[in-house]
């Protein structure tokens, strides 16, 4: 996903002169063509994340479409007040694109982790949250939404799905008793290909979401690749109180371990085996 991002931007910038790209000194080499072609519409603002967002708000006020990109904790945690005030409160549209979701940078330690982005940003219903799990899906979501006059957050992370699933939709819908809801790249849908479950995929968390399909199920498992049971919260607000829900996500704790993402996920019990074990135990 990270590789296709500059390609998507370059193509859009050549068509849409309103687009402005602000970078927090990340992936600069991969944006080299854009620097060559549109050097006054792409700025590497270095590590001044808070000012970069405030600056983006100024551009947005003047009618430009800012795309603001950096590593998740620095973009979301450090500059949260700027997101809240400069964009959400001012009702100024923008596209915030983060890289390094949850523990993607597992070996770099907690300073570079951000498990809490979705949980925090979901407090503002005004922000559209996009969590693609395939590069073409990201392309589809970005091209469709970048000028929707809203505050958009795109979470670039690992590729999990082989094929893009462009919208929130059923992957398996065979009237099984149990429903699994996969959010973003938490686990591959292939994991459940031979299981007797229905499968629903979510890559867009928005103010208005239709959860009526939940009514059909007594047991629902939600798998979310971050802190907090965001989907469960949204579903409960829709009064599906008779539905038994198991939320599987990362435990809300600071990680003092390293290793590859696979190994760290196993340690954090957010790997395929542990997820399946918890689902099987859920009656």
């Amino acid at each position: 996903m990270r590789k296709v991002f500059p390609e998507i931007i370059e193509k859009l910038m050549s068509k849409d002169k309103k687009i402005f790209c602000l970078l927090g000194d990340i992936g600069i080499f991969s944006f080299r063509n854009i620097f060559k072609r549109f050097n006054n519409r792409i700025l590497n603002m270095s590590t001044m994340e808070q000012t970069m967002l405030g600056f983006g708000s100024g551009l947005s006020k003047a009618g430009f479409i800012p795309i603001i990109h950096s590593i998740t904790p620095f973009l979301i945690l450090r500059a949260l007040e700027q997101i809240k005030i400069d964009f959400v409160y001012n009702k100024l549209p923008c596209n915030i694109v983060s890289v390094g979701a949850s523990n993607d940078y597992s070996k770099l330690g907690t300073t570079h982790h951000c498990f809490e982005d979705i949980s925090i940003l979901s407090n503002y219903n005004d922000i559209n949250l996009f969590l693609p799990s395939n590069p073409n899906e990201f392309k589809h979501l970005f091209e469709k939404n970048y000028k929707n006059k809203s505050v958009n957050y795109f979470r670039i992370s690992g590729n999990v799905e082989k094929k893009p699933i462009n919208n929130n939709s059923f992957i398996i819908n065979k009237k099984n008793k149990k429903l699994i809801i996969i959010v973003g790249n938490s686990i591959s849908s292939e994991t459940f290909a031979d299981k007797k479950v229905d499968l629903y995929y979510i890559n867009s968390i928005k103010r208005k979401m239709n959860f009526n399909f939940i009514k059909r199920y007594k047991n629902v498992v939600i798998i979310e690749p971050y802190y907090g049971s965001i989907l469960e919260r949204k579903i409960r607000r829709n009064n599906f109180l008779n539905t038994k829900i198991l939320s599987i996500g990362y435990d809300e704790t600071i990680v003092h371990k390293y290793g590859t993402k696979l190994i760290q996920d196993k340690y954090l019990k957010f790997n395929k085996e542990n997820i399946l074990k918890r689902i099987n135990e859920f009656k």
């Binding site: 808070q50 000012t51 405030g54 600056f55 551009l59 947005s60 430009f64 700027q82 005030i85 001012n90």
Partner: peptide
């Protein structure tokens, strides 16, 4: 009210982005 302000240190970054945008235009 060009920008919502109240949290200190927001207006100037907003102004800088707006200044850049005006120059661009």
């Amino acid at each position: 009210f060009s920008f919502s302000t109240g949290s200190l240190g927001h207006g100037l970054p907003n102004a800088v982005g707006y200044a850049y945008a005006l120059r661009q235009k």
